[in-house]
Computed example of a mutant assay.
Amino acid sequence: MTEFTVASTEFQNRAGVYIERAAKDPVFITKHSRPVRVLLDIDEYRKLRRNYREALYASELSDDHLQAILTVELPAEAEALNHEMTEPKIK
Rank of each mutant, 00 (worst) to 15 (best):
T2K: 10
E3Q: 08
E3V: 08
E3K: 06
F4R: 02
T5K: 04
T5S: 12
V6Y: 01
V6R: 00
V6Q: 01
A7L: 05
A7I: 05
A7N: 14
S8G: 00
T9V: 14
T9C: 04
E10F: 01
Q12A: 14
Q12R: 10
Q12G: 03
N13E: 15
R14S: 14
R14K: 12
I19V: 14
R21V: 03
R21L: 05
A22M: 05
K24P: 01
K24N: 13
D25F: 02
V27N: 01
I29A: 04
T30E: 11
K31L: 14
S33T: 15
S33Y: 08
R34I: 13
V36G: 00
V38K: 01
L39T: 03
L40T: 02
D43R: 09
D43V: 14
E44G: 07
Y45L: 15
K47Q: 12
R49K: 11
N51K: 12
N51W: 04
N51G: 12
Y52H: 11
Y52R: 09
R53S: 11
A55E: 14
A55W: 09
S59P: 00
D63K: 07
D64P: 00
L66Q: 11
A68L: 09
A68W: 04
I69M: 09
I69H: 02
I69T: 01
V72P: 00
E73P: 03
E73H: 07
L74R: 06
P75L: 07
E77N: 03
E77L: 04
A78I: 10
A78R: 05
E79T: 11
E79I: 11
A80R: 10
A80Y: 02
N82V: 14
N82R: 13
E84S: 06
T86S: 08
E87D: 14
K89D: 14
I90D: 12
K91C: 09
